[in-house]
Design a protein around this nucleic acid. Sequence first.
DNA 1: TCAAGTTGTCTAGTATCATAGACAACTTGG
DNA 2: CCAAGTTGTCTATGATACTAGACAACTTGA
Lengths: 242, 242
Amino acid sequence: MSMQDTASSGVALWRLVADGIERGIADGRFAAGDKLPGEMEIAETYRVNRHTVRRALAALAERGIVRAERGSGTYVETQKLAYPLRSRTRFSEIVGADGREPHGRLIEASDDVATRELARELGLKAGAPLIRIEAMRLADRTPICVSTTWLSAQLFPGAGDVFAATRSMTKLLEHYGIRDYRRGATRITAGIVDATDAARLELALGRPILVVDATDHDLDGKPLVTKHSRFAAERVEFLVES
Amino acid sequence: MSMQDTASSGVALWRLVADGIERGIADGRFAAGDKLPGEMEIAETYRVNRHTVRRALAALAERGIVRAERGSGTYVETQKLAYPLRSRTRFSEIVGADGREPHGRLIEASDDVATRELARELGLKAGAPLIRIEAMRLADRTPICVSTTWLSAQLFPGAGDVFAATRSMTKLLEHYGIRDYRRGATRITAGIVDATDAARLELALGRPILVVDATDHDLDGKPLVTKHSRFAAERVEFLVES
DNA sequence: TCAAGTTGTCTAGTATCATAGACAACTTGG
DNA sequence: CCAAGTTGTCTATGATACTAGACAACTTGA
């Protein structure tokens, strides 16, 4: 590798190294607790200066993916988040069960208008006022997914502010008196991350993402919210129960 | 945006801008022939210096996606090939209907042996002799896809030579007395182009591809050929009819 | 013809990226 | 304890990324 590669691709060398290592962890070449090769060895395999490797490892360490031990080596901290797809799915519960700390972050909340598709999913009329929430979910400090969520502006007035305060869709619904809800039909597809999501997910450009479309209903079957979520494929593993 | 964003993400700003514009073209926000917003306007929307926008546009121009006209503006060059996925799909017809000239090119023909999966698709026994044809399809002079096609060596003896002469799967089947055929179940996935296909498709490394697996049957439902095709995602758009 | 708007080109300055070398601090295994 | 191997930190240098401003060259529409 060389600066020429960086210039032509627009991706920093240390980022390529970091992504390569993270991919190795995702693929299982390095399991949780494993010792990574030494910095010099990594530098040789990527044909890169040791300082560049250190930059990459620092980025991974900041996200809690690896942990450096002076004099000893650098060790893998995390493993893929097992994400069961049940009708009752709560991000915070899943992450908590994995021994990691769930976080939510509001990216943007804005008013929107129901397209035909959104109206059908939410049981509204096309053109109905909606609130669109762009949010992000993390486990410890690692971004897991970004979601675009739509709710009826009439059923959930001021939902954007509520989410900004609670950072949780479950708590948002509780705020409007909804104690429990269920996930309806879920569509799973895959795609390539775009630049915006890549920056948000701290994901390399061009990496695969898992795209999940789903609508949550209350216990009477009335649609509440519909979501379009993009998961970093290398950090999560969907489990579908039979 | 600022250098701080770049530092944290390891992705150059101009790359984010270029991807954003390319996405706009892919999404149809900018159609072929359309004039893009001025460099200053793009710079404002991305909160970036005009020179950074010019870097992004230069990268897109080098790939033939946009074309700058001094004093006038920057225009979208490319147009995606609309590719309807019907049970009766002929590449030449689709390309011709788009007003472009279809071409076929034989890359390689070789003998092969049926794996379990291939045997199941073709209704043969595992280990049965096959002919494997690696071919490429173009519209005008733009590569659209590369396909690996398997046929029974017993049903279609010398198929490689026939394809080399006709450069068309339809004509190949005609040569063996098959006047019409239908496409069976089609699986569509996405992935990243590998180095070999990238060179063939004249595609940059790391670009997305649409992977299509399908088996063609004769009118009695007997499997004829099974294909594994890789389309340059940025040059084609599949249309699935409901 | 002319003014406004567009892309093309130049200079300059600051911050980051990447490389290079040296040495300190620490852990591990013999 | 000691040698080998590891990560941590420092200085230094050159290339690249991004911003900033100015002006030239060109197109378009009034």
